[in-house]
Amino acid sequence: MAELESILIEEAKQDSRAFGELVLRYQDRLFNFLYRMTGNREDAQDLAQEVFLRVYKALHRFRPDAPFRPWLYKIAMNLAINHAKGRRPTALLEEDVPSHGPLASPEGTAEQRETQQAIRQAILELPEVYRAVILLRHVDELSYEEMAQVLEVPLGTAKVRLHRARSLLQEKLREAGIKGGDHELQHRATAHPTLPG
């Protein structure tokens, strides 16, 4: 996988058409990340295009042994953060359609949709850096090392930021009244299936 990517990158340095393979490989993930960062499809599309263009222009300086994915996300994150500067927090107006992926389903109860809407809004209300950290880890599934590379901070600092981001997000969801009252929580916690030991 990583080797194939390295070959693609080396080819893309020589041939702009080969660069298209990289675009196809990453466009969905990048668009999704930027959409969750901005809350707006048009902005996400414009930013994704800009990210790819910047990558293309700087590709000749990219070392073959360097990890590509953190570099790509670093450019995307920085662009999204700059884009958000001076703007008011985004209010969601649109539904997540069309969607794909193992967890995406066009069906779903009104309650599920409401919960998803609240989560999307809560993510958008996080400070940009925390928003990015949550998305990088829990949506784009970057490793902690990759996350630290994107943020350009030590591994421990990256983890601390993720912890802070999670705490802020659960706080916002609690304020938004997302279901999961203490009675239900007590019931679940007494027989929690995933806690080891």
Partner: peptide, 11 residues
């Protein structure tokens, strides 16, 4: 909940 958000396809 974050992990279960739908993944959107690029336009």
């Amino acid at each position: 909940a974050v992990e279960s958000l739908p993944r959107l396809a690029a336009p």
